[in-house]
Design a protein around this nucleic acid. Structure first.
Length: 457
DNA sequence: TTAATATTCCT
DNA sequence: GGAATATTA
């Protein structure tokens, strides 16, 4: 009997899963394996929201496998040691895994390949699992990656994607492979109250609902903060409970400008993945150095704490930060506002913001999170690196009646309409009624400091 | 063919 | 301002 190990990472699904398909096609049995990777835990990626969502995903993956006659095997510790151990136990000749773009993923792949080779086993790495189009599949003349979105999108849009694979009917797993108990969501402490449910079943229901109704209005409503009319599929893309290939195929089958705009956003994710794949250091270093001397010291740390805790005195920014704390998720427009405020208005290092987002966001992945932070900081691929979003103007545009702010900043719930966006305009007496902080910095001071630091104007 | 230059465009 | 591509020599 031949056996293969399928190592699940950011691809916790049974539909459209090329590594599982290949393993099943060429072997009598497979071991679907997930490793609770101690290095990922130690790096702070196993923050409560993510761990709770992961627990949902693993439970659902296990039940999907059980419906098909199999089960999920969980081990924890060093991923290479655990894979090697399982491969030896079942004498697997191959281990299948999805390719990924982070430096950590590349390193993991190299270590796995080396360790398995020593035992006479083979690592098979599958492209187009984490992204629809493999990074590097399209490149501009003279470079290994695209640095501007629109030309990338043009090329990406013309590429033919492979057809999505159906979920396997049966998965045969050897009986004698031990598994640790799966983590349980209820056991995770400090989880955000409004955290979404994980797992492939929940993901597929969300996608079906989205494509049936929400997507049609996506182009008009994606920036509507209180309307909350985005797909909310990002956590499922992050954990791979949905396949980007399948999402794109199914969204393209829905005609209209909404579906088109939605696919374009999926392409942004692919864009960031191909940048990071080509420049893994961009996860921590400036993609384009702007020679910033970000603020540091006590004042900077106080300002950061105010931002993190949703107490900057700018209601729209605070609302966004509190949504993050409460849901482990934030509206994309909120992310732009919060990011611009931290890096441009407070002039604090984008890495501080990126680290906090990665801890809190259930959808936070290295490529999207780090590259979007760099975008907002102006050190990334933005062709207008010194743009500063004015939180008041943005608030008036994307939350014109103040509904979003009142939802998340209850101290200001009595302020009607757009007045909620500028509480500092109240008279002293009125202001005293509201237990809400003064602005940490005036917008003009923040702008001056940023311009001076960047040497613009 | 290739390199230099012009043009277009940037969520 | 600079990335990507189109045009030209």
């Amino acid at each position: 009997m031949t056996v293969a190990v399928v190592l699940f990472t950011s691809d916790l699904r049974l539909h459209d899963h090329p590594p599982l398909r290949a393993a099943l096609d060429n072997h009598d049995a497979v071991v679907p394996l997930f490793v609770r990777d101690e290095r990922i835990d130690a790096a702070g990626f196993a923050a409560p929201n993510r761990l709770a969502f992961l627990a949902d995903c693993l439970a659902d993956l296990d039940s999907g496998l059980r419906e098909r006659g199999g089960r999920l095997v969980l081990r924890s510790g060093d991923v290479v040691a655990r894979v090697r151990e399982v491969a030896r136990e079942v004498d697997a000749d191959e281990v299948h895994v999805a390719a990924d773009v982070s430096r950590y993923a590349h390193h993991r792949e190299d270590r796995l390949r080396g360790a398995l080779r020593e035992d006479g086993r083979r690592l098979r790495v599958h492209e187009a699992v984490v992204t629809a189009l493999p990074p590097g599949a399209v490149t501009p003349a003279g470079s290994d990656h695209f640095a501007v979105f629109t030309p990338y999108h043009r090329r990406w849009d013309q590429e033919r994607l492979r057809d999505p694979l159906p979920a396997p009917r049966t998965v045969r797993v050897p009986d004698d492979v031990a598994s640790e108990d799966l983590p349980r969501r209820e056991k995770v402490a400090d989880v955000s109250e409004g955290l979404a449910q994980g797992g492939e079943q929940a993901a597929r229901r969300s996608l079906a609902t989205w494509l049936r109704s929400g997507v049609h209005q996506y182009d008009e409503r994606h920036d509507d903060l209180p309307g909350d009319a985005t797909s909310r599929l990002s956590p499922h893309l992050h954990f791979g409970t949905l396949s980007p290939t399948e999402i794109v195929h199914r969204a393209r089958a829905v005609s209209g400008s909404g579906a088109e705009a939605f696919v374009r956003q999926v392409c942004w994710r692919e864009f960031h993945h191909q940048v990071l794949a080509a420049r893994p250091a961009a996860a921590h270093d400036d993609y384009r150095a702007k020679h910033d001397r970000w603020r540091s010291g006590g004042d900077a740390e106080d300002d950061f704490a105010a931002w993190r805790d949703g107490l900057t005195g700018y209601p729209i920014v605070d609302a966004a930060m509190r949504q993050l704390a409460h849901e482990g998720w934030m509206h994309n427009r909120g992310r732009l506002l919060a990011g611009s405020f931290l890096t441009k208005t407070l002039y604090l290092d984008w890495r501080w913001g990126a680290r906090h987002f990665l801890r809190m966001l259930v959808d936070g992945d290295v490529a999207n999170n780090q590259m979007n932070w760099q975008w907002m900081a102006g050190t990334g691929t933005d062709t207008r690196p010194n743009r500063v979003l004015n939180p008041v103007r943005q608030a008036l545009r994307y939350d014109p009646d103040g509904v979003y702010v009142r939802r998340w900043v209850p101290e200001l719930a009595d302020l009607e309409g757009a007045a909620v966006h500028e509480p500092w305009k109240l008279t002293g007496l009125e202001r005293a009624q509201y237990d809400y902080p003064d602005p940490v910095v005036s917008l003009s001071e923040g702008l001056d400091r940023f311009k001076q630091a960047r040497g613009v104007d």
